[in-house]
Amino acid sequence: MESTVTIALARRLLARLRAADPVLGRVALGRADFARAFAGAPFRGPSDAALVRARVAAAGSSFARGMSALRGDRRRALWAVYAFCRAVDDIADGAMPEAEKRRFLQDWRGKLARPDCALSRELARARDRYALPVEECEAMIAGMETDAAPALRIADGAALDLYCRRVAGSVGAMAVRIFGAPEAADFGLALGRTLQLVNILRDMDEDAARDRVYVPRDLLAAHGVAEGPPAAMLAAPGLAAAARVLAAQAEQGFARAEAELAAFDNPALLPARIMMWAYRRIFDRLVARGFGPPRARPRLTAGEKARMAAYALRLAPVAAR
């Protein structure tokens, strides 16, 4: 019980530190925090599954709405995969020095072999139950090691394919297995690449602020965009034409995914359709907006989010089978 109280207070303090700035003022716990920790002590704290569930809920991602189409153990497994991806992505996007990022990512390689925390234990459980290849988790970490660099440029189409395979294809390959359609692994890989292209087109300005440019160098050069500071590259007249090439690839990817879904005729893949629907909405707005400045970030409307949730609830009994 003493350990339960200590850990509960530590988690609460960590949450406060994430939300506040300890440089501006002391961040401390209050009487209510201690009372809550002592009241929960007999119950030995939240389970691993509850801690991962809370992490997913705090992320507020549209991906979480797609996960709500699942029920029971399948949802729990997909939560673990999502939370793992979010954890390593947060490391790569953090403000730590590159060496520290790489050390933390290497620590995660160790956690895959020897789970030592709530998230790594939940991920190990999902891997065991749904035969998720550990290589896919390692691929995600490798992709985040690419993002950990202080500045990032993608050399060519082959390098972009490899990056997409690691950071998005890995998720697709694991997700279809959790859905109950392991035969659709190639579909998951291809869909992951398509959705990652949408992410790249949507986040160009945000990535540029981190000195990252994911539009390949050879494609940019072909449209007259010279290497330089990211802001200058994104302001170049040829950037929009280069982005439209990636948009055309994404369009082809959506068409292929729709055809393959029809060919599989597998109800287990219906959760993937929810994500495709949401990403297609964002993609259509990107194309309609264009890729020259200014680039307002397209978002799903409240009505579309509600529609996703309703669609997920309607599919949940099917997807839980």
Rank of each mutant, 00 (worst) to 15 (best):
Arg16Glu: 13
Ala184Thr: 08
Ala159Trp: 01
Phe34Trp: 13
Arg210Trp: 00
Ala272Met: 11
Glu136Gln: 14
Arg74Cys: 01
His223Thr: 10
Ala87Thr: 10
Arg202Ser: 08
Ala59Cys: 07
Pro293Ile: 01
Ala168Met: 07
Glu251Gly: 11
Glu145Gln: 14
Thr194Tyr: 07
Glu260Met: 09
Gly172Lys: 04
Arg314Val: 14
Val213Arg: 01
Phe291Ser: 09
Asp116Arg: 05
Leu195Lys: 04
Pro42His: 05
Met174Ala: 03
Phe254Gly: 05
Arg75Ile: 07
Pro115Cys: 00
Lys101Thr: 06
Pro150Gln: 02
Val176Leu: 02
Ser120Val: 08
Arg12Ile: 09
Tyr82Asn: 05
Pro133Ala: 07
Pro22Thr: 05
Glu2Phe: 09
Glu2Thr: 15
Cys137Glu: 11
Glu183Thr: 08
Glu98His: 12
Ala263Ile: 02
Arg18Asn: 07
Cys85Leu: 08
Thr4Val: 14
Ala278Ser: 13
Val198Lys: 12
Ala247Arg: 07
Leu132His: 02
Arg109Cys: 09
Leu220Asp: 11
Ala54His: 01
Ala87Cys: 09
Arg289Tyr: 00
Asn266Met: 03
Cys164Ile: 02
Met1Asn: 10
Ala113Leu: 14
Met1Leu: 10
Ala222Thr: 14
Ala64Tyr: 13
Ala69Ser: 10
Leu13Gln: 07
Val198Met: 12
Arg86Gln: 11
Ala288Met: 05
Ala255Asp: 12
Val52Phe: 01
Phe84Val: 03
Leu132Trp: 04
Pro298Leu: 06
Leu17Lys: 04
Ile200Pro: 03
Ala80Arg: 05
Thr146Ala: 03
Val23Arg: 14
Gln249Arg: 15
Leu315Met: 10
Thr301Cys: 01
Arg165Asp: 15
Leu269Pro: 06
Arg114Glu: 13
Arg299Trp: 08
Ala316Gly: 06
Ala190Ser: 15
Leu9Cys: 06
Ala243Asn: 09
Tyr82Arg: 07
Ala57Cys: 00
Arg129His: 11
Glu304Trp: 05
Phe104Asn: 06
Leu105Trp: 04
Met275Arg: 04
Ala58His: 05
Leu313Met: 13
Ile91Arg: 02
Met204Trp: 07
Arg166Asp: 06
Phe264Ser: 05
Leu123Glu: 03
Ala288Lys: 09
Ala185His: 02
Gly30Phe: 03
Leu286Asn: 09
Asp89Ser: 07
Val225Gly: 04
Asp48Ala: 08
Asp116Ala: 15
Ala87His: 14
Arg297Tyr: 09
Ala309Pro: 01
Arg217Tyr: 00
Phe264Ala: 10
Ile154Trp: 02
Ala50Lys: 08
Arg102Gln: 13
Arg289Cys: 08
Gln106Thr: 14
Pro216Phe: 14
Asn266Ile: 02
Asp205Arg: 11
Cys164Ser: 13
Asp128Val: 10
Ala209Arg: 15
Val318Phe: 10
Gly169Arg: 06
Leu261Asp: 02
Arg31Val: 10
Lys101Ile: 06
Ala236Phe: 09
Arg314Met: 14
Ala221Arg: 15
Asp203Val: 12
Ile274Glu: 03
Leu300Ala: 09
Ala118Thr: 06
Leu51Tyr: 00
